[in-house]
Amino acid sequence: MAQVAFLGLGVMGFPMAGHLAAAGHDVTVYNRSGQKAADWVARHGGRAAPTPREAAEGAAFVMTCVGNDDDLRQVCLGRDGAFAGMAPGAIFVDHTTVSARVTRELAAVAHQAGLGFVDAPVSGGQAGAENGQLSVMCGGTEADYAAAEPVIAAYAKICRRMGDVGAGQLTKMANQIAIAGLVQGLAESLSFAEKAGLSIPEVVEVISQGAAGSWQMQNRYKTMAEGKFDFGFAVDWMRKDLGICLATADETGASLPVTALVDQFYKEVQAMGGGRWDTSALIARLRR
C-alpha cells in the first residue's frame, strides 16, 4: 500500500479518493474548500492538508482531479504547489481533463525536478467514480505508468497507457468528441419519436437492440424523456472539454464539424440556464 495525496474533491475526486482509502492506501487530501476536505476525512479517515505542498510531502503518488488548465497549474506550481512538496522519484498522476499543451508543460517541469508524470483523464461520470468503474486513459513513460497503474486500479474498470505524456488527454478528447455526437443523435431521435406520437419506452426497447444501441441510450433515455438533467456531467464542463477538442483540432488539422455544431447547441442550453444540467440536456433545446 502506498502513501498517496489526492488534490481536488469534487463530484469525481471525492469518491475516487475514497476508493484509495478503502483499498488500504494512506491518503492525505487537499481541496480549495477546506470544509469538503474535512467532510472527506470524517467519512474515510486519513488527513487533510491546508496546501497542495503539504498534502504532497512524503507521498509516493500525488493524484489530482481539478477543473481546468489554470486550476491544474495552481495546484502544481509555486511555493505551495504540489511539485514543491514532492520528493524525487514520486509520481504525479493527473485525472483532470485539460489540454495536452498544459500537460506537456507541467510534465517538463516535473521531470526537471526528478518527478514522474502520468496524465490520466477519466470517463464514466459521477456514477463511474462512485462505483469505482472508471475508464482511465494514460500518457507517460512505461515505467511511470507501471508504477501508477496498481494505485489507479482502486477506481478503474479499465486503465491503459496510450503513449507518451499527452496521449491520455488526446484520447479523452476523442472520447468527448464521440459523446457529443451520440448525445445529439439520441436527443433528436427521442424528440422525433415524441413529436410523432410514438411511445418512447417502446421505441427505445426496439432500437436499442440493434445498431442504434449505446450507453447513452441505455442510461439516459428515461431522464431525457422526463426532462430531468441532474444525472451526469455538466454542460459547462462539456463546453470546456469541447473547446479543448476544437482548439487541438485546429493545431493538428483535424476536421470536427459535428463537434463544433454540438458545442454551439450546448451554448444554447447554457443560455437557457442549463449550464449545470447534465449533457443529456441537449433535448431541452429541441422542446422549446
Rank of each mutant, 00 (worst) to 15 (best):
H25R: 10
E202P: 08
M63T: 13
T96M: 04
A143N: 06
P50L: 02
G114A: 02
G140S: 07
L186T: 04
G185F: 09
Q264R: 15
A154R: 01
V206P: 03
F265I: 15
A55Q: 03
W40S: 09
A113E: 07
I177Q: 03
L286F: 05
G24D: 08
L282D: 04
P88T: 01
H111K: 13
F233P: 11
W237R: 15
Q169S: 06
R32Q: 13
G45D: 08
A143V: 11
A193K: 04
G243R: 10
A23G: 10
V183F: 00
Q133I: 09
Y266R: 10
V102A: 03
R53M: 08
A193I: 13
P50C: 02
A17N: 02
W40D: 10
K228Q: 12
M16F: 01
T103Q: 09
V258K: 05
A156T: 03
Q35Y: 06
D278G: 07
G274A: 09
A22C: 09
T51V: 13
E142S: 11
G274V: 14
T64H: 08
D144F: 01
Q112D: 10
Q270W: 10
A247W: 00
A260C: 13
I283W: 01
Q112W: 00
D278M: 07
Q133N: 10
G275S: 09
I283Q: 02
Q169R: 06
F14P: 01
G140D: 11
A17P: 05
V41N: 12
T96K: 11
A211Q: 09
G8V: 12
L198T: 10
W40G: 09
Q216R: 08
R161E: 13
W237C: 13
A107H: 05
A146C: 11
G128E: 03
S123H: 08
A196I: 12
G140V: 07
A110F: 00
A38I: 06
M63D: 10
R79W: 00
L261Y: 15
M272P: 01
L286C: 00
R32Y: 08
A56S: 15
C159I: 08
M272Y: 10
N131W: 02
A174V: 12
G78E: 04
S208D: 15
V109Y: 00
N219K: 15
G275E: 14
A5Y: 09
A196T: 15
V136S: 01
P15C: 03
A84T: 12
G10A: 09
R47C: 02
A249G: 15
M86P: 04
G213I: 11
D278L: 09
D119M: 02
R104L: 01
M224C: 00
N31Y: 01
G181V: 02
G8I: 06
Y30R: 10
K157M: 01
A107N: 04
K172C: 06
G197D: 11
F117S: 08
I179Q: 08
I283K: 00
A82N: 04
F117D: 12
L20A: 08
R104S: 05
E251C: 00
I152T: 03
L134R: 04
R239D: 02
V269Q: 02
A225F: 00
L190A: 02
F231A: 02
D26F: 01
M86I: 07
M173F: 13
A153E: 04
H25Y: 06
P50Y: 01
I91V: 15
D80I: 04
A82R: 06
G85R: 05
